[in-house]
Amino acid sequence: MNALEIKNLEKTYANGLHALKGIDLQVDEADFFALLGPNGAGKSTTIGIISSLVNKNSGKISIFGFDLDMHISQVKSCLGIVPQELNFSQFETCQEIVLNQAGYYGIKRHVALKRAEKYLGELGLWDRRHDISRTLSGGLKRRLMIARALINEPRMLILDEPTAGVDVELRRSMWDFLKEINSNGTTILLTTHYLEEAENLCKNIAIIDKGLIIEHTSMRQLLGKLNIETFVLDLEAPVSQLPSIDKFTLRLIDPLTIEADLIKGNTINELFYILTKHNIRVSSMRNKSSRLEELFIRLLNI
């Protein structure tokens, strides 16, 4: 069964902005799905419509078989939403925020308390449960929104840029947490500007641009489309000039660093072999950017 199915979804805002131009999207149950796109592409509008905070103009949405227009209560019961912007009361404690959310879903107090302990604990907020939410750091506020979204134990968790502004350490721990949630069967729909994040976490992906889905496939297939990868090579000794090599494009960044474009089919061993022949020895290497980032840039003609 599809966790999410969107058919011909359109949205035009009152100011005339045509945010969605008839998009189709399917997300399988238990999938970890990335919805990527540049700013203003229509990601948040799509999530807003799914979470019934934005009215659509036309199109159909169903969540686990429940039609959004016909069975809104069932649809809402299946979802947990982590929005892009902070949207909790700045004057309530972490525990109040999470327990109130449970209350809105009709969850009994004793059940809600257990779940609050579980999710606040797993997200490292249990010790700060009595703190007023506005006193939390940016990263902890984002964690609080994840704990709140999980309190109804949703079948599908929607995360709209959950790690925006979060430091690397916290981001990595959030990845682990989300992977675990997903491995337990929760479908996750993620939007993010960190393409490395999507590449690491997601099995399937859609790219949206100017209100249209321009790519909808598995992460593996999408990354397979990448014809050129750029590597940064750190050299053992400085060089002043690069040799001309047919199969590879080389650029001298500084005397100790070169960039090499590797076309699909050529191997990195071949490059090392040729460089060694020209007396250029490589001490270390890395991808210039994530593979998904390179594809993203090419697909969107940025």
């Binding site: 905070l53 009361s89 879903y105």
Partner: peptide, 17 residues
Amino acid sequence: GAKYQRHIEEILIAPVP
């Protein structure tokens, strides 16, 4: 205030009539 701080969304996304 709930609209301004956007925490009205907490209720709107929940299945509360």
